[in-house]
Amino acid sequence: MLPAIGSAGLAIDDVADRLVAALGADLADVRVQEPDTVVAAVERGRLHDVAVALRGLDGLAYESCNFVAAVDHVSRFECVYHLYSFASNTYLELHVEVPRADPSVATVSDVWPAADWHEREAWDMMGIRFEGHPDLRRILLRDDWVGHPLRKDYVDTIDNHPHV
């Protein structure tokens, strides 16, 4: 296994320690995934503040949002943000729980513009609303599509298939 030493000379355990020191109140279940990833959970209401703080973290700035994933756990949804720090050459995986009754979470597209289309895809496929998103339209399916097809309880309708 390669040692995960970035340009800042930080081992991944040191990165986790620094993250806890800086944002310990907001990060839960912090654990290290060898060789170069820190995994943490964030409260839904704190996501945007944490995102701003992470991006500006001195020497450990998570400047890149690689992708935003959405997971359907049936009882709840979960958004997963994969962030990358050029300064330390490490990744951070943020998990945010989203209740099924109110599938919404604050957008981070103003913090990382790359998140814009990823959040549109999560809306399109999983039906998670990203509050404050500048242009939350469907991105892959037709605009008049009914439902969000990657949800576990999705039922397809004939309205979605005018050519059959």
Binding site: L140, L141, P149, Y154, D156, N160, H161, H163, V164
Partner: peptide, 11 residues
Amino acid sequence: GYNVVNGVDKV
């Protein structure tokens, strides 16, 4: 698939 046209002859 939910989004696939089953044959272009439908179009």
